[in-house]
Design a protein around this nucleic acid. Structure first.
Lengths: 75, 75
DNA sequence: GTGTGACTATTAGTCCGTA
DNA sequence: ATACGGACTAATAGTCACA
């Protein structure tokens, strides 16, 4: 991106924390979530740590694996 | 990876329709939204038509430009 | 069970047009 | 004002070995 004006990295960390929180609520590991959603385990790790700018399709995949609406992950 | 393992594609169109809807509610043009959020106008167009897999950072930027929570765009 | 750096292939996102 | 391309660059997806 070229416009580093307002919100660069915080949304990623917020999303990551939220994801980890919801995942743990269901008592599943990153490994299991990765398998269920069809993404790499190390990718789940990176997302939860706010180091990856996840795309809408993968947000949706994770939400489905957790059986939650995608919007829930952004709250 | 199992690209066909879990449903993709629809979420993009759902998001695009939702974005267009919320944008029009505020009487804003794609051009204005693009400018306010710092993304390319042609990109907003592509996103609204469900042709682009937008990332979390840009979802957040659009949400801020519309002065709405990001989760609202995914509902 | 998780964090991290490195890596390649793919795509997100830009900028230029045309209609 | 919007749709839709092409060409381009930067960033993401996805994987791996190792900590």
């Amino acid at each position: 991106m070229k416009k580093s004006s307002i919100p660069p990295k915080d949304p990623l960390q917020a999303f990551g924390r939220r994801l980890a929180e919801l995942r743990k609520e269901q008592g599943i590991s990153q490994e299991q979530l990765a398998y269920m959603s069809g993404v790499a385990r190390s990718y789940v790790s990176g997302v939860e740590r706010g180091q990856r700018n996840i795309s809408l399709i993968n947000i949706t995949r994770l939400a489905e694996a957790l059986q939650l609406p995608a919007s829930k992950l952004l709250e």
